[in-house]
Design a protein around this nucleic acid. Structure first.
Lengths: 150, 150
DNA sequence: TATTGTTATACTCTATAACTATA
DNA sequence: TATAGTTATAGAGTATAACAATA
């Protein structure tokens, strides 16, 4: 596409068309993520939690990251803990707080999931420098905007 | 960013950094979508189905679009039908097949959801022509690649 | 009193398996 | 016999409300 001789002038997509494309791409990405997680016996939420636990997080902190009620985190961590992928640790200075943290088995599980997320990696690895810079800027803007309360 | 005087040379992100950014952006997008749908009393799946039903689809066809088992579609359409947003219609030439289609109330419901998806629209509406063309190309490649079985 | 985490409950989405009506 | 849709069942994620332990 970069060096076709006599390209048709590429049509400029409208914001509406871009939003539809973005929806399709993000859906495909999530399905890829869920499929890979599933191949490793994890739901997408479980895989996401393991990724978030690169550092220990309190149950409350995890709920904030997941944007869900704190009561849900109990069950999610219960299931991961029963499989030995995560453990709870009580905060020594405030015994109300419990930190969830990955075990070594959890480290290994999520390492394998990430290694298998090849479909997206393949596309992104093919990008040239200019495209990478542009895409990173755009994704940061999208993320920043979407993080605001709409 | 297009006309800053003496910009720092922008760092070229690695494929790994791009994938993390893409994960963050898609997560933010889905949360935006789910939040807007929720404000209109719909789950994200229900809103997604209403969008897919821009044309009538058989229960089977809907399951393919959703990438889920056909047995799930029964319940999803049941709930939408009980709220008057969708109706079932039997195919006259093959009475095994039922088509789900939006009612006028369904048209109106999804129209309102889309109108409220402003956070993403705002970012995309600000893009220049070159950025739009580049982004559309990239998203199409991502979608096409991710649709292949990984 | 306020906060952290948990339990109880109910709903939605999901997959699997078995069933029916139709082709 | 094959296909389309459904039902039954079970597991996971979600929100709300009420609760115990701790601050």
């Amino acid at each position: 596409m970069a060096h076709s001789e006599r390209p048709e002038p590429a049509a400029v997509p409208t914001a509406g068309q871009l939003i539809d494309l973005f929806a399709l791409a993000t859906t495909a990405y999530f399905q890829d993520f869920a499929a890979v997680a599933g191949q490793h016996g994890l739901t997408s939420t479980q895989a996401k939690v393991l990724i978030l636990l690169r550092e220990p997080l309190s149950m409350r902190g995890l709920a904030e990251q997941l944007i869900c009620d704190a009561s849900n985190v109990t069950g999610i961590i219960d299931r991961l803990e029963s499989r030995g992928l995560v453990r709870r640790e009580v905060d020594p200075t405030d015994r109300r707080i419990k930190y969830a943290q990955r075990t070594e088995a959890g480290d290994e599980a999520i390492r394998r999931v990430r290694a298998d997320m090849q479909a997206t990696q393949r596309v992104l690895a093919d990008l040239g420098d200019d495209d990478r810079i542009a895409l990173a800027g755009l994704l940061r803007r999208l993320q920043g905007t979407l993080d605001q309360p709409s």
